[in-house]
Design a protein around this nucleic acid. Sequence first.
DNA 1: CTCCAAGGTTCATTCAATGAACTGATGGAG
DNA 2: CTCCATCAGTTCATTGAATGAACCTTGGAG
Lengths: 173, 173
Amino acid sequence: MALGKNYEGQDCSLARALELVGERWTLLVVRDALYGVRRYGDFLAHLGIPRAVLSQRLQTLVDAGVLERVRYSQSPPRDEYVLTAMGRELWGPVYLLAQWGERNLSKAGPRRVFHHVTCGARIDPHGLCPSCGGRPPLEETEVRPGPGADPFRDDPVSVALRRPHRMLGPLPG
Amino acid sequence: MALGKNYEGQDCSLARALELVGERWTLLVVRDALYGVRRYGDFLAHLGIPRAVLSQRLQTLVDAGVLERVRYSQSPPRDEYVLTAMGRELWGPVYLLAQWGERNLSKAGPRRVFHHVTCGARIDPHGLCPSCGGRPPLEETEVRPGPGADPFRDDPVSVALRRPHRMLGPLPG
DNA sequence: CTCCAAGGTTCATTCAATGAACTGATGGAG
DNA sequence: CTCCATCAGTTCATTGAATGAACCTTGGAG
């Protein structure tokens, strides 16, 4: 982003957050990781991001401690990118921003809805479970397709992400 | 951002939100507007943003309905940019993102802290008032300098923003 | 030995950001 | 009336990042 020069003058922690996750594509990568996407090729297919940009973003996020690169196959050597605790904490801001977009910029209904699996209730716009009143952790949150889901994307990652599944969990199917 | 082409394929309201407020500088402009900054010259001085970029961002935000351009002086003709309801709703995501940056990227203490004026209590990291348990509206929220506030920025806007004042209110001093 | 796939890197082109200079309207001081 | 300053931009040359296509590398599979 080359904002270091400018952001050093900024008197706000938002600026430091944006330095890291405010770059083009970065929050979409994090969102996909929250949904359970872990592999280079899956990010690539689902986001339609240029390869060079994806490589650079993954590296930046690993360096910053948002993602961790984990070997999941010795031979052939293959790594996947999984969210750290720091990365999982981005769920709050990401969820609120998506809800804001939903309310203000979307004509169709929500593309995805989120449920608290232990209660079965749909999570509200502030991120609270209307049934238990708590803030469901990601491990107890399930993504399901909403009424505005786009049924025309038929690449394997999009199809897998349309099946109800736990957040962070490996892609179903 | 020229992301229209790419974002049309995106199956998520987050993408639409980022199309609008995910551009470089945009969320910092919104943050300043939430703090009470309203004038072109004040944004310019406080953010250190290039003039051409500020003009473009303000125009985009006005077109999208996040800001409204309001005439506050007939002669000389002067306009200010104030947040609409849609813009004020960005407080949630902006606050959570700043808190995330605070926890994960900041060594000093918080630069600003937020209090619910009707209770006097400091708002917690989720945006709730620990005293009344509610989610204080912006009109009842006061910004105060925190322990990590940078005392070296002495331009008039930074000085004004360091004085405790209501969110959205005109700059004190 | 050849072929293929996953996960990258390289490279030319396009597009946006930057910072400095310029414009244009208005009003105040002398 | 003239000169100067201020505010709110616009213009422009330069730099830097994003894009998309092509290429490379490693390690199976047949």
